[in-house]
Design a protein around this nucleic acid. Sequence first.
DNA 1: TACTGCGTTCAGTCCGTACTGAACGGAATC
DNA 2: GATTCCGTTCAGTACGGACTGAACGCAGTA
Lengths: 172, 172
Amino acid sequence: MPVARPGAAPPTVHSRGRRSVIEAAGNLCRRVGLPRTVGQIYGLLFLSPQPLSLESIAEQLGISKASVSTGTRQLASWGAIRQVWVPGNRKDHFEAIPEIGGLIRSAYRQIVKPRLDASQKRATALIEVLRQDYETGALTKEEFDFCCRRMHTLSRLQKGLQSFAPLLEQIL
Amino acid sequence: MPVARPGAAPPTVHSRGRRSVIEAAGNLCRRVGLPRTVGQIYGLLFLSPQPLSLESIAEQLGISKASVSTGTRQLASWGAIRQVWVPGNRKDHFEAIPEIGGLIRSAYRQIVKPRLDASQKRATALIEVLRQDYETGALTKEEFDFCCRRMHTLSRLQKGLQSFAPLLEQIL
DNA sequence: TACTGCGTTCAGTCCGTACTGAACGGAATC
DNA sequence: GATTCCGTTCAGTACGGACTGAACGCAGTA
């Protein structure tokens, strides 16, 4: 029964709805291979009308200020949150940038796309390596041919994936 | 200088090209949150003209048979590899199913899509929770309104993501 | 210049989990 | 039925990385 405590310092988020969003965001991040605290911080800020200080984030989430410091740095570097100066207050404050679609877009541009292009290049270069393996006897003729065919199917797949780029830019 | 060793038992994959594919597949899996051995197994089978036994997979990759056993079960459950009976041989043999596009498609259908739909439902249900939080005083009027607006932007994003489904079915 | 309040950095701990080795069960061969 | 040869299961280990607490640096304040 989370009821607003008037005088005492509130150590945690006291809204069930907010908590469940924070939890979901944390789990999502963890699933994608990111620290769960990063997701929690973004979730908290995402539902906060006014900017929050580093300290208050740490208190509300029940995590150390160190984690919040590194987490906010990450999020800011991705353009997911913004640092805000509150006049007459020495503490750093943060607010969420709610355009998640843009985040996904830039994540694709900065992470997925380059990786896809690089692997495309490596795939073609790899056929040359396979030929060397064949010539040094590490691969039989049959194996070499088979590998080449498989690498070509891989290339086709990569082409298909790359064709997603414009769609993603368009939809989100 | 990996040259084919005639008599001695070959403990590892002896083609640089294959090794690099196996390595890449392992890293990709690890990045997505899957055991790297799963990717390595698929990579090895993907470039093998004839089916491989569980034991030979373990030898070539330098991992335990236990890992191969669990890994092959996973891959087979996803339809990424197929168990093959080699006549006159009691060992289980495996071969890769090279249609990776289909794998991605079914992974989306079985994992991403349901999760997206569920979170869509939870998002609308959550507004009701937020209203309760408001009525119990855990949320001010301003906070409640703000949260509702943010949840609506979230819903829009989810709609956008869901519209990917037909495109994905079409391209891959 | 000393002091306080802030954020960052870093060594160390803790936790989740991938992986292993050994024990187990089951089928084919004798 | 005994034995051998498989694959699977499970307890235990090892490893990576997220998180913490304390020390540090750096501004503002006296």
